[in-house]
């Protein structure tokens, strides 16, 4: 092979390598830049404003960077908004209440969802497809309309009260809409499929014969469940619980529509602080504090997902 052809050969190789790597840069680059601008930067803007001072101006907050009289750049960081959240009992109560509501709802979802997922796994292939479809279908229909459906059931003049009065069980309507009970019901109802699907995916992979073996060896059903089934389905339980707990903590629509004025949920406070009180710095501080509450469960979820995709 002559030297010239060798050089041209290596040139071609080099060029194709470069082309390929620039093609790769493009594939990563487009979504990367998009997420950087529309996900990461906004987050830092919220962080910045949460340290600013509330002003009656447009925009209604002070700048972090100011030119002092001697011309030096000053950075003014105020922890006032966070101190305000900390001192105002209303906010603390709201945070605790949000976590409590989300936690109890997650537990109820688990108690209802676990046997449902189990029953689906155990059914015949054709039935399984139909049942899965029935679980997924509500997930595709409008979330807002499913919450609205409960308004019709729970209202003072609603279906449940009408039915109970007609049956003669009660003679005065029970107040159910605009109560804490309605918020729990709404959250469990809306997030139940999110619990069932990860549980199902986890159980589907399990060897169901294992606990039959345990039963054959004389283990009591409760022992089999506690020592074999429960530990094996733990990844599904954790994934499903996080998928319910995280969004439920920041939920806005359900407490607003079903909980009415007296429901204290942090997502609702954030929304009202921003849209009704126009207090951007406090709204931003509420958002950051909410993220702090949720950062541990969110990282746990990411960890599980990345482990799942590796295996």
């Amino acid at each position: 092979m002559s030297e010239a052809s060798q050089i041209s050969n290596s040139l071609v190789k080099n060029l194709s390598y470069k082309l390929q790597s620039s093609w790769k840069t493009l594939v990563v680059g487009i979504p990367y830049i998009w997420l950087f601008i529309f996900f990461l930067v906004p987050f830092f803007i919220v962080l910045k404003i949460s340290f600013a001072e509330s002003l009656i101006a447009s925009p209604p907050f002070s700048s972090l960077f100011q030119w002092a009289e001697d011309g030096a750049l000053q950075i003014r960081v105020l922890f006032d908004n966070f101190a305000y959240l900390w001192e105002d009992e209303l906010y603390i109560t709201t945070y605790i209440n949000s976590v409590k509501v989300a936690f109890i709802s997650t537990l109820i979802c688990l108690i209802i969802g676990y046997p449902m997922a189990y029953a689906i796994v155990r059914s015949s292939p054709t039935k399984k497809n139909i049942l899965l479809m029935l679980i997924i279908l509500p997930f595709w229909t409008s979330f807002l309309l499913r919450v609205y459906a409960w308004m019709g059931l729970l209202a003072d003049q609603g279906t449940i009260n009408n039915l109970l009065i007609w049956l003669g069980i009660i003679d005065q309507p029970i107040r159910m809409l605009y109560t804490q009970f309605a918020v729990y019901l709404g959250i469990v109802y809306s997030y139940l499929p999110f619990m069932i699907l990860p549980l199902y995916a986890n159980m589907e992979k399990l060897d169901i014969t294992l606990h039959e073996a345990a039963a054959d060896l004389g283990a009591k059903p409760i022992t089999t469940f506690l020592t074999v089934t429960l530990p094996m389905t733990m990844p599904g339980i954790i994934a499903g619980s996080l998928l319910v707990f995280i969004p439920a903590t920041g939920e806005y629509v359900i407490p607003d529509l079903l909980g009415g004025g007296n429901s204290l949920m942090i997502g609702k406070v954030l929304y009202n602080e921003f849209n009704n009180n126009h207090d951007w710095p406090v709204a931003s501080a509420v958002a950051i504090a909410l993220l702090i509450v949720l950062v541990a469960p969110m990282m746990l979820y990411q960890h599980i997902q990345s482990k799942e995709s590796e295996s």
């Binding site: 919220v46 806005y252 709204a283 931003s284 958002a287």
Partner: peptide
């Protein structure tokens, strides 16, 4: 974004 509460995503994008 899969697990981010909607109120935070909405607020941060509006501020952007």
């Amino acid at each position: 974004p899969l697990v981010m509460p909607e109120v935070i995503t909405g607020l941060s994008l509006l501020l952007l």
